[in-house]
Simulated assay, not measured.
Amino acid sequence: MELRDVWFVFIAILWIGYFFLEGFDFGVGVLTKLLARDRIERRVLINAIGPVWDGNEVWLISAGAATFAAFPEWYATLFSGFYLPLLLILVCLIIRGVSFEFRAKRTGERWQTNWEHAIFWSSLLPAFLWGVAFGNIVRGVKIDANKEYVGNLLDLLNPYAILGGLVTLTLFTFHGAVFTALKTDGDIRHRARTLATVLGLVTAVLSLGFLTWTQIARGDGSSLVAMVVATAALVGAIVLNTAGREGWSFALSGVTIVAAVGMLFLTLFPDVMPSSLDDRWSLTVDNASSTPLTLTIMTWCAGIALPLVVVYQSWTYWVFRKRIGTQHIAEAH
């Protein structure tokens, strides 16, 4: 395995880590409207992810930076071709971060309600758009001989990509509901478990269709194994959630995300961005990568930085591991 192959795997790991971690706090953001009945319960949900949501976004920054350095042609084509969707995601992430911080700065009902709306929409839209983006990457887009995207925005809104967006939206919301059941106490915990079962069943139907479509279009033996793992883990997560085993259910919902995203990268390799116009114009790990010297320097840097990030985030989750409930909220700020 050459360094460019190693970096393809490393970037896949970064995206998997991002979707595993940011997935549940996107889901919790959506649940502020679907699950919470009043302002106190919305504060419980926000507090559940308050200590960790910003750290989860480190994985996105790392994935983007790694793509820029290791596969500059991929980065250039992706960010120019998907400019508007990625810009919308970026705006949502900015608004989302501001909403968490500004919501409690004033006690006025209108002020807090507006920021709560912002939390909901800036969680829902990225959860959907990431699936659309990756659906298009796997399906292939209009890339010409100059490695430039020559399609338009409507080309990105195809049935396969939209189904991918619905899968990530429902899967992340299910992941968030299971996390809520694991992290909270009292009535909201039981309602989160009930809602998670419903969301899990919807996710199972959508994801089975999307993964089957992916397997038929681009899959091989390894991607089929990943698909089976993702499906089995999702079913297990639903069953264990129903049985009240939130910890194991959350672990398996995470395995579902890991296997499903892993399957997408398995179907891509050795391409990083297939061309739907001509296979010869596809971006691959060979023609889109940086020089061996650049990849070598990056490998040393990543070998030092990644363990530190994992240790720090693990410590953060351990410190803030206890359940919270409405009894811990003195008043609705």
Results as ranks from 00 to 15, higher is better:
residue 150 V to M: 05
residue 80 S to V: 13
residue 136 N to L: 03
residue 137 I to K: 13
residue 43 R to C: 00
residue 83 Y to A: 05
residue 104 A to R: 14
residue 101 E to G: 03
residue 46 I to A: 14
residue 123 S to Y: 02
residue 51 P to E: 06
residue 147 K to Q: 13
residue 122 S to E: 01
residue 152 N to P: 00
residue 147 K to N: 14
residue 127 A to M: 05
residue 61 I to Y: 10
residue 96 R to M: 00
residue 47 N to Q: 15
residue 70 A to D: 09
residue 117 H to R: 15
residue 129 L to C: 11
residue 83 Y to F: 14
residue 86 L to V: 11
residue 131 G to Y: 09
residue 46 I to C: 04
residue 71 F to V: 03
residue 44 V to D: 00
residue 140 G to W: 07
residue 91 V to A: 15
residue 126 P to M: 00
residue 144 D to Y: 03
residue 125 L to N: 05
residue 153 L to H: 12
residue 115 W to L: 06
residue 78 L to Y: 03
residue 87 L to N: 09
residue 118 A to G: 07
residue 140 G to P: 09
residue 108 G to K: 02
residue 141 V to G: 03
residue 149 Y to M: 03
residue 67 T to L: 15
residue 153 L to F: 13
residue 89 I to N: 11
residue 67 T to C: 12
residue 84 L to A: 08
residue 75 Y to M: 06
residue 56 N to P: 03
residue 122 S to A: 15
residue 55 G to I: 13
residue 42 R to G: 07
residue 101 E to V: 14
residue 121 W to A: 11
residue 44 V to M: 01
residue 106 R to I: 00
residue 84 L to C: 05
residue 54 D to K: 13
residue 139 R to I: 04
residue 133 A to P: 12
residue 155 D to K: 05
residue 105 K to F: 07
residue 55 G to C: 11
residue 121 W to M: 11
residue 94 I to T: 13
residue 46 I to M: 11
residue 122 S to H: 06
residue 147 K to E: 08
residue 134 F to R: 14
residue 92 C to Y: 09
residue 50 G to Q: 00
residue 129 L to G: 11
residue 44 V to P: 00
residue 92 C to R: 07
residue 123 S to M: 10
residue 47 N to E: 14
residue 78 L to Q: 08
residue 76 A to D: 10
residue 77 T to A: 15
residue 36 A to C: 05
residue 60 L to E: 00
residue 63 A to Q: 07
residue 41 E to C: 12
residue 113 T to M: 05
residue 103 R to Y: 02
residue 46 I to K: 11
residue 137 I to R: 11
residue 109 E to K: 10
residue 48 A to D: 06
residue 61 I to T: 12
residue 61 I to Q: 13
residue 102 F to Y: 15
residue 60 L to F: 12
residue 83 Y to C: 05
residue 86 L to T: 10
residue 101 E to Q: 09
residue 81 G to H: 07
residue 138 V to K: 14
residue 72 P to A: 05
residue 156 L to V: 05
residue 75 Y to I: 06
residue 61 I to N: 14
residue 118 A to W: 04
